[in-house]
Every structure is written in structure tokens, then in C-alpha cells.
Design a protein around this nucleic acid. Structure first.
Lengths: 224, 224
DNA sequence: TTCGACAAAATTGTCAACAATAACGGAGCC
DNA sequence: GGCTCCGTTATTGTTGACAATTTTGTCGAA
């Protein structure tokens, strides 16, 4: 179902995308070593190309590189995940406010439809479908906001925390909590209420942070 | 006074730092082409090394690279500078609040001293000295906050907007406006008032945004 | 047995050369 | 005279090989 050993089209961008996908999809697990020669063979690209890709992914926060000791998939700790969510709280509230100011009628329809589909997904117990709609909603809000700088930062952070996000989405009862928060954001944006939209985004991200901490406490109940 | 033609120590990291410095110091002006062979000769490093450096700086937002057409120093428009300042407004307020929660007694003394030195610099008309203290203050607050994710993003954004920041600092009367804003941030942080500190940071960055727009309007009074 | 030094293997950092692509300029054609 | 086409030139993309460094494994001595 995935790609076999060697995929053609060895272009520089392709390798970056391929490795990034492998990381976010979980094919490459945290702390896994990324040996240049191995990746070179796996993706059918030259070593210099994968090297460039690793440098790029390092700046995206997905890969860790140390002098003469190679690269590995960066493992983001719970603390980092919380930090990332705090930054997201600030930037997503900014984007939500901007989106509420600039949204067009067509985009209102788009967001409303997304909201309805999310409701249906939750009602139907389609967790992974809901998770996908979740991401689409957040991305669409970023796009509507027109704040490309914030959008870029958020996109980068999303890549880093996707693993924690996914673990969160799988927790029983989590969708029932986050759905009304998402709907509140949609309502505020569609109603052209920037301050309200920002507040709704803050509430949602606060909820995410709390859930992150709770999930960790449950997984490792006794921490020294 | 700067470096002559070829500086030794060709290490990968060195080239990144050297080119970055050249850009932020204004030695390389916006839109200037960065030909790999030229840089290779200038810094005494191999082309592969400067190539890696350019990739890294691209992800930092300092250079722009287009397929088969090379790299050039990225020019950040006024709109982008405003966007960056908006993001800074959110993240610096977050850091200010966190710093107000975590600051130690020793750090209180440090910040207070910085504030006094800033007052003296403004009183003495030392604009560039004030500008340096300004940067040190913001960086110290980021460090005290302990929010490394936000700090990292802010550091990156600072590199992109340093040119606009500098132009701003040179405007007559600007230090007199920003000084009390900085002192307010210091006071709130040292008094352990997170919400107040965040608000002071927001006020300061709002002022920066307004000043940016005003400076641009003055430079190009008639825009089509 | 355990510790340290030393050799061997694996891996990254660096370099020079080759191929591919896009900007540039002139000749030919309408 | 202006425009298109094509060869030239400059520059980037890619490859393979070599040097430097770290890690691993082994042997000998306390």
C-alpha cells in the first residue's frame, strides 16, 4: 500500500516530502536514526539530496542533527507538546480573529459545512474522519485569516505535535469535548465577531492542553 | 573592519553564521543574489557547504530560493513586517506572562538594571546603544519565560524583521515613545503580574505596528 | 572479571567534476 | 524594424569519491 523500495522522481523537494510524510505518518518512529546512505537507497536519491532534506526537516523541528553523529527523528516530550499548544493558543486565536474580520459569504458556507460534517462524524463514531475534518478546519481558518506568517508557524508546529494530537484524538470521549469548542469557533468567525472567535480559540486550545496533561497522567500514573 | 576576502574555519555551521550575520548586518542587501560559487570563494568553503547553509537560511526566512534560479536575500515587505509584529505581539505577551510567573530575585535585578541603562541611553541620545539594550531586554524576557518553543519562533522572526526594526529605531522621537512601554513591561514582570505583563507587551507591540505603518507612510507618501 | 587502549567499521563532512536548466545575445525571418 | 529561433554562457542540481570523525569490537593487563 505504501511505496515499494525505490520510488522514482528523486527531486530534492520530493525527498523532503517523502521523509516528512514517513515521520508524521509514524513510519519513522521518534529517536529512530536516519542514516543518509540508507535513505539514499530507500528513496533512490543521492546522498547530497537526502542530506539537504535532513537539513530542511531539522529546521522544521521534525529531525534532530548533531555534529558528526547523524540525524534522528526528533521526539517531542509532553512538556514540548504543551509549549507548542500554548503557542498555538496565541496564534490560532490571532488567526481566528482575523478570519472573523475577513471571511466572505462563500467561506461562511464552507466553514458551516465543515461544522456539520464534524457533527455527523462524531455522532457516527468516526474518530479518524473527525480528526481529518479537525485538521481541515484549522487549516481553513488559517487560510481565511490571511496571516501568512502565523499560518506558516502554525503549520510547522502542527508537524511537530501531530503524534500527540493523534493520541489525543483517540481518547474516548475527547471528540464529544472538542466538538462544541470547534462549533463555537465556527459560529464566532461566521458571525464576524473577532474577539469572540479569539476567545473561542483560546478556550479550545486550553482544553487541548488540559487533555494532553491528563492523557499523560493516565499513561504514566507514577512519575518520580 | 569586517573580514577580508577569505576567512578560514570553513565549517558548515560557520558558513551559516557568517552568511546570516552578513544579511542581518546589512552587508548583503535585500534581493541581492547569492551565487553559490561566489560565496564559496568568499568564505573559503566548498560549494556543497554554502549550499547547505543557504538551505538552512531559507528555512529561517532570510533567503529565498527558487528552482534552478538560485538564492537571494529575502526582502520583507511592510505588510510582512506588520504580520511579523502581530505574531510577536501574541508570543511576546505569552513570554512576558510566563516570565512574570517564574522570574527569580536575581533576574529581577537584571531586568531593573537593563531598564535603568535604557533610560540613561535615551537621556543621553545614544540611539544605537538603546537599540542594543532593547534587543537584550526582549531576549532576556524570552529566556526567563522558559518557553523555548515561543522563544525559538521569536528569534527566527527577529532575524527577518531586524531591518525594519532598525529603521524604526532611527526615527526621531521613537525611543521616547518605546522607553516607557519597555519600563512598563519590566515593572509588571518584576512585580509578578502575568496578566499585566502580557498587556504591557501587547501595548508595546501595537505601538511598534503603528510606528511601522507611519514610517512607511512618511517614506512613500503617495502610494497608488 | 573489569577496565583501558587500540584497531576496525560505520557514518558523516567535504570536495571536485559532470549534467541539466534557465537567462542572455545574436542571427535569421517575417 | 520587430519578432522568433537557436546557440552560448552562467548557474544550479546531482553524482561519486575521498577525508575526518565517531562508534564499535577486541585484546591484554590489573
Amino acid at each position: 500500500m505504501t511505496e515499494s523500495a525505490a520510488d522514482r522522481q528523486p527531486g530534492e523537494r520530493s525527498v523532503v516530502a517523502a521523509v516528512r510524510d514517513a515521520i508524521v505518518r509514524g513510519e519513522f518512529v521518534p529517536n529512530q536514526r536516519l542514516v543518509e546512505a540508507d535513505l539514499s537507497a530507500q528513496f533512490g536519491a543521492s546522498r547530497a539530496t537526502v542530506r539537504a532534506a535532513l537539513i530542511e526537516l531539522t529546521n522544521e523541528g521534525l529531525v534532530e542533527r548533531v555534529q558528526n553523529r547523524g540525524a534522528r527523528v526528533r521526539a517531542v516530550s509532553l512538556e514540548e507538546a504543551v509549549e507548542i499548544s500554548e503557542v498555538r493558543m496565541m496564534l490560532e486565536s490571532l488567526c481566528a480573529a482575523k478570519a472573523a474580520e475577513r471571511i466572505s459569504d462563500a467561506e461562511v458556507g464552507e466553514l458551516r459545512e465543515l461544522g456539520e460534517r464534524m457533527q455527523m462524524a462524531v455522532a457516527g463514531g468516526d474518530v479518524v474522519g473527525y480528526s481529518g475534518l479537525n485538521q481541515r478546519l484549522h487549516r481553513r481558518i488559517r487560510e481565511i485569516s490571511g496571516q501568512r506568517t502565523a499560518a506558516q508557524v502554525l503549520e510547522r508546529l502542527r508537524g511537530q505535535s501531530v503524534r500527540h494530537q493523534f493520541r489525543l484524538a483517540m481518547r474516548p470521549g475527547r471528540p464529544q469535548v472538542s466538538l462544541p469548542e470547534h462549533l463555537a469557533i465556527i459560529d464566532a468567525i461566521c458571525a464576524n465577531h473577532p474577539e469572540e472567535a479569539a476567545e473561542a480559540a483560546r478556550v479550545h486550545l486550553s482544553s487541548v492542553i488540559e487533555a494532553l496533561k491528563a492523557a499523560d497522567a493516565e499513561v504514566s500514573p507514577l512519575h518520580p
